[in-house]
C-alpha cells in the first residue's frame, strides 16, 4: 500500500514539471499568445524579485548564524528539557526541534548526526527524520516570501508559524511513539 503510494508520488513528481511546461506553453499557442515574447516579459521580473529579497534574508540569516555559533542553543535546551521530558520527547531531539524553524541546513546536519549516533531505524532515528519531514524552515520562508514584496510588518505570521511548528513536533513525537515507541 505504502509502496504503491510512494511510486505513484514519485512518478507524479518526475513528470510534473515537463507536463506543466507543455500544458502552459501549449495552451498559450492554442490561444494565440505570442509565447516567446510573453515568456520573456514575465521572466524579466525574476531578477528584481531575487534582488528584493536580499536585505530581508541578510537580516534573518546573520541573526540566526550568530545565535547558532554562540552555543546559546545548549542553554535553551537546558532550560526547556524538563518541560519536553513531560511530553515524552527524548532530550536528544530537542535541539533539532528548536533548530528546525531557524535553519534548514543546520537541522539537516543535526538530523543526520542523530541518526548516525543512535541508529537510523532506532526510535530516535525515526523520530528525528519525522520531525525534520513534518516541518519547514519557518524563518527562511518568512524572510523570502515577505521580503519579495517588501513586507516589513509581518503581523501574526510568525506566531502562527511557530505554533504550527510546535504542533508539528508534538504530532511527530505522538505518532512515532505510537508506531515505533518504546
Amino acid at each position: 500500500m505504502v509502496e504503491i503510494f510512494r511510486s505513484a508520488i514519485n512518478i507524479i513528481s518526475a513528470l510534473a514539471i515537463p507536463i506543466f511546461i507543455v500544458v502552459f506553453l501549449g495552451w498559450g499557442v492554442i490561444k494565440k499568445v505570442k509565447v516567446y515574447e510573453v515568456f520573456v516579459e514575465g521572466a524579466k521580473d525574476g531578477f528584481n524579485t531575487a534582488v528584493r529579497i536580499i536585505p530581508f534574508l541578510v537580516a534573518m540569516l546573520f541573526a540566526i548564524g550568530i545565535f547558532r555559533v554562540s552555543g546559546a542553543m545548549d542553554v535553551v535546551v537546558l532550560i526547556l528539557s524538563p518541560i519536553t521530558n513531560l511530553i515524552g520527547m527524548p532530550a536528544e531531539v530537542l535541539p533539532l526541534g528548536l533548530l528546525r524553524p531557524l535553519s534548514g541546513s543546520g537541522s539537516m546536519g543535526l538530523m543526520t548526526e542523530l541518526m548516525k549516533t543512535n541508529g537510523v531505524d532506532s526510535f530516535i532515528g525515526v523520530l528525528a527524520s519525522t520531525m525534520y519531514g513534518s516541518s519547514e524552515t519557518t524563518f527562511y520562508i518568512l524572510a523570502v516570501y515577505f521580503g519579495s514584496v517588501g513586507i516589513k510588518n509581518t503581523r501574526h505570521a510568525l506566531p502562527a508559524g511557530l505554533i504550527a511548528d510546535f504542533f508539528g513536533m508534538l504530532g511527530a513525537v505522538f505518532i512515532t511513539r505510537i508506531l515505533f515507541g518504546i
Binding site: 510512494r6 525515526v126 513534518s134 504550527a164 513536533m169 504530532g171 511527530a172 505518532i175 512515532t176 508506531l179
Partner: peptide, 11 residues
Amino acid sequence: IGTSIFGAACA
C-alpha cells in the same frame, strides 16, 4: 512517509 505526513498535517 506516513509519520511525516501526520506531523505536517498536525502543523
